[in-house]
Write a protein that binds this DNA or RNA. Structure first.
Length: 314
DNA sequence: AAAATTTGACCGTC
DNA sequence: GACGGTCAAATTTT
């Protein structure tokens, strides 16, 4: 893939930022819950989010390295993160001529979007699982979902969930195909109470565990983490191999007439253009503090380095 | 009993 | 023939 000319250098920079933040994080953990100031809380949240984002970035970048020998690298079907509607499903360019059992491969005209997330169900729609397959060259099965209102509203939206890693925070590649025509989104509360499709994930030790989205589990257990520290999603440009965007949890993927837009529950968000041109996503919000933090362990240059590492992989 | 999931079979594409 | 997306009967869950 034709990305950065110096990939190893970029990986080193991200790894450096990761280690830098990691080393400074304990400085913000001296306060107990009662002493936790808003500033420290925000800083801790930012650190958590930055660590998670950098971890994700490293994961993606290492996975993309040709011949890197990463844990997930293997044969053709376990392709790196060059997610393209053309290549992801091995399209042949023909529209299926029959509606019989077993019809497959979608046409090239059909829209698909690919994201990398640790919360594959958190998209505001109700899905029903209709299949599961062991895919060649991958360690995990691929799960197939259709819109629950397929037969009520004729909605043709489907998605595939493929676990990508078996880390403590398992990551999933989610491929959406076809747009929803059902207008059947659910609210956050409805989502929390909804029956979610069953999806298990593999732990590092190889055992299988039920997959429960973090936000649901935390709310059910009464454990509310700082909102910025919940989870991350990487939106992968499906056409141009642009750098992935790392999004923090307050962002919701919600449908609009064009597909999806991102909304934020955080007031101190800024808008940053994203280079994607395929209509998949054109604008991303990057959370920034409203003003310099007191006791901020980073100087401006370091923050610039972190920011550039996150956004541009510089 | 109804709804949801599982799983083997089917079938188009490569 | 291999692969993988979908179907649908069987099974499980609610």
């Amino acid at each position: 893939m034709a990305c950065e000319p110096d990939r190893d250098g970029a990986i080193r920079e991200v790894a450096k930022a990761y280690e830098f933040i990691k080393s400074y994080q304990p400085r913000l953990q001296f306060c107990d819950d009662h002493q936790l100031s808003a500033t420290t809380n925000l800083a801790q949240s930012l650190l958590n989010e930055a660590l998670r984002a950098l971890h994700l970035a490293l994961f993606v970048m290492n996975s993309e390295s040709p011949g890197s020998g990463g844990a997930e690298s293997s044969s053709r079907s376990n392709m790196p993160h060059v997610f393209s509607p053309m290549s992801a499903a091995g399209h042949a360019g023909g529209i299926p001529t029959q509606q019989r059992k077993g019809k497959r491969r979608r046409s090239t005209e059909e829209t698909s979007r690919v994201i990398l997330t640790d919360r594959p169900h958190d998209d505001g729609y109700v899905w029903r699982k209709y299949g599961e397959k062991k895919i060649n060259g991958t360690h995990f099965t691929r799960n197939y979902f259709r819109c629950s209102y397929k037969y009520d509203s004729g909605c043709q939206a489907t998605k595939q969930i493929q676990q990508q890693s078996s880390n403590d925070l398992p990551m999933f590649q989610v491929t959406y195909s076809s747009e929803h025509t059902c207008n059947c989104t659910i609210t956050t509360n409805e989502y929390i109470n909804a029956d979610l499709p069953q999806l298990s994930y593999r732990n590092p030790n190889g055992t299988s565990s039920p997959m429960v989205d973090n936000v649901i589990k935390h709310e059910q257990e009464g454990l509310l983490l700082p909102p910025l520290a919940e989870a991350s999603t990487v939106l992968l440009d499906s056409m141009s191999c642009q750098e992935p965007l790392v999004l923090s949890d307050p962002y919701n993927l919600s449908p609009n007439h064009d597909g999806y837009h991102m909304t934020s529950t955080n007031d101190c968000a800024s808008f940053f253009p994203c280079g994607s041109t395929d209509g998949y996503i054109e604008l991303a919000q990057m959370v920034l503090p409203p003003e310099p933090l007191e006791d901020n362990p980073f100087n401006d240059a370091e923050l610039d380095l972190l920011y550039n590492s996150l956004i541009y992989n510089k």
